[in-house]
Write a protein that binds this DNA or RNA. Structure first.
Length: 493
RNA sequence: GGGCCCGUAGCUCAGCUCGGUAGAGCAGGCGGCUCUUAACCGCAAGGUCAGGGGUUCGAAUCCCCUCGGGCCCGCCA
């Protein structure tokens, strides 16, 4: 435990005084409490200086500031609905009660108030207090009332402190929840079944990323935390669930930056008897619905306008190979060997390991030559087969797979395929990845191949990061802005 | 992993360039004030200047190392 500061000492003394007087500084509940907006509404018709003794209200919240003027004081109380001024007058509650209350209450305390709606002489809607109740004494003082918590490190380590001083941060948290609710409702009403699949696996597959490893007493050895949802969801399609989706945390043992977090929330959905064209239609419908909701919820301003611009249909579609050839001036990419691709990637400064799969070099080239030009939601389609070991070969374009990615400026938003369902071809693709030593690559999963030997229906699947989706829809600059508890290193000794 | 920047009171920040006993505002304490809303006025209090080492008569300030954070680059479906 931290050492007590002088301020905390003062506040503990107040708690002791409270108890000595037989009052409870941490009561159990505050029944009958309403939100401050109810008082605000009731005060609406009143004129400055008036109050309405016909109705009483009970409110509760965090005491944000106290303005004392001798025999009258103004408290600001914050709750989920916003903030309300509480008017405390010595002539109404008695001078002893008045002095006692103000001596024992501090900013940051959780306080209940009973009173009547009123409007101050200066026109501020208020609750004119008849009684105050301490609901929880704050021992530690809150951050500064005007600037809030500015220190970037403290905001990451103690996000609750940022939340308690910043209505904007609280609004952002609720906005994310609303958008996730929309996503869930969209897939559910499209007939998808929401499922949960294991986080702990013998081998984390379905993507190329370094896993976290943990120890299981039950299996008597190591387990890995999932890096994607793909493989178990497809097994459910083998099992006869025809439309499934999952929203859940996945874990990749990598660095944090403005668009990557070691743990993040992913959605993946799989749809039997449909292909990637149908999936694109479904995704565009989702985007339209989310955009409408986000525009409703976001405050008016440049950020909202920018978001609307990025997500305004129709969305450009570019062919991965054609666009990369056009912008890079490189020759026929599909006939280039791995050595040639590696040389091209080296020439633009990429430092990926020499032994990386050919697809990695293609991804690097695309990232360098094409991604920076993306200004609006853009679909990139029909990638070279080497980039994508879990996608089905393109029905007409040789050397390609049926795949689309959705990009917004700055990052990839979604990734979808017509899924590979030929078990022998799947085994060959895994072998290819296994042969390319070094670098992160798809780990072959024989158990998955075994599962689809029983028959995976033709199907399409999509995956996207919920965090990034919320970023794009709210104009957030960093993934940390949409995660309530971003990862932080342990504090040094 | 590399480069640059940052860390001073519970919080928000000055002070560092050019070394000379640590400053303000908010919050807290005491006193005053019946209409404020970043209330105001007066008094007093509050510090491991992130941590460690070095240079120096003297280090918050200059140098080195470590820790934590930010931005950029690299790596990462």
């Amino acid at each position: 435990m931290d050492e007590e500061t002088g301020l905390e000492h003062e506040r503990r003394a107040k708690v002791a005084r409270w108890r000595a007087e037989g009052r409870e500084p941490y009561p159990w509940a505050f029944p009958g409490r309403v939100l401050t907006e109810a008082v605000r509404r009731a005060a609406g018709p009143l004129r400055p200086g008036e109050s309405d003794p016909a109705v009483t209200f009970r409110i509760a919240g965090r005491l944000r500031s106290v303005r004392r003027h001798g025999q009258v004081a103004f408290l600001d109380l914050d709750d989920a609905a916003g903030s309300l001024q509480v008017l405390v007058r010595a002539d109404l509650i008695g001078e002893d009660a008045y002095r006692g209350w103000l001596a024992d209450l501090d900013p940051g305390d959780l306080v209940g108030a009973d009173g009547i709606p009123a409007v101050s002489k200066r026109g501020e809607p208020s609750l004119e207090v008849r009684a105050l109740t301490l609901l929880a004494k704050a021992i530690s003082p809150p951050p500064e009332k005007y600037h809030g918590l500015q220190d970037a490190e403290e905001r990451i380590r103690r996000p609750y402190l940022d939340l308690l001083t910043s209505p904007e941060s609280r609004a952002r948290a609720r906005l994310r929840s609303e958008l996730v609710g929309e996503v869930r409702g969209y897939f559910t009403s499209a007939g998808f079944t929401e499922v949960e699949t294991p986080v702990l696996l013998p081998v984390a597959g379905g993507a190329a990323a370094a896993p976290f490893v943990t120890r299981s007493r039950y299996v008597g050895g190591d387990l890995q935390l999932r890096i994607a949802l793909e493989l178990p969801l497809k097994k459910l399609l083998v099992g006869g669930l025809e439309k499934v989706f999952e929203i859940g945390k996945v874990f990749r043992n990598e660095d944090l930056d403005s668009t990557h977090s070691p743990e993040f929330t992913e959605l993946e959905a799989y749809w039997a008897y449909a292909d990637y064209t149908e999936m694109r239609g479904l995704f565009e419908g989702l985007v339209a619905r989310l955009l409408a909701r986000a525009q409703e919820l976001l405050p008016e301003g440049p950020a909202r306008t920018k978001v609307a611009e990025v997500f305004r249909p129709p969305f450009p579609t570019i062919d991965f190979v054609d666009e990369l050839e056009r912008r890079s001036g490189l020759g026929d990419l599909l006939t280039m060997g791995r050595d040639e691709l590696r040389a091209a990637a080296r020439s633009i400064g990429s430092t990926v390991p020499d032994a990386s799969p050919a697809g990695t070099f293609l991804d690097k080239l695309f990232e360098h030559y094409v991604e920076p030009s993306i200004e609006r939601l853009t679909f990139v389609v029909d990638h070279p087969a080497a980039t994508t070991p879990l996608a089905k070969p393109h029905r007409s374009k040789s050397g390609r797979v049926e795949r689309f990615e959705a990009f917004v400026p700055g990052f990839e938003l979604a990734n979808a395929y017509t899924e590979l369902n030929d078990p022998d071809e799947q085994a060959r693709r895994f072998d290819e990845q296994a042969r390319a030593a070094g670098g992160d690559r798809y780990v072959p999963d024989p158990e998955f191949v075994r599962a689809i030997r029983y028959g995976l229906p033709p199907c399409t699947g999509i995956g996207f990061g919920i965090d990034r989706l919320v970023m794009a829809l709210t104009g957030a600059a960093s993934i940390k802005d949409v995660i309530l508890f971003p990862i932080a290193r342990p504090r040094g000794v």
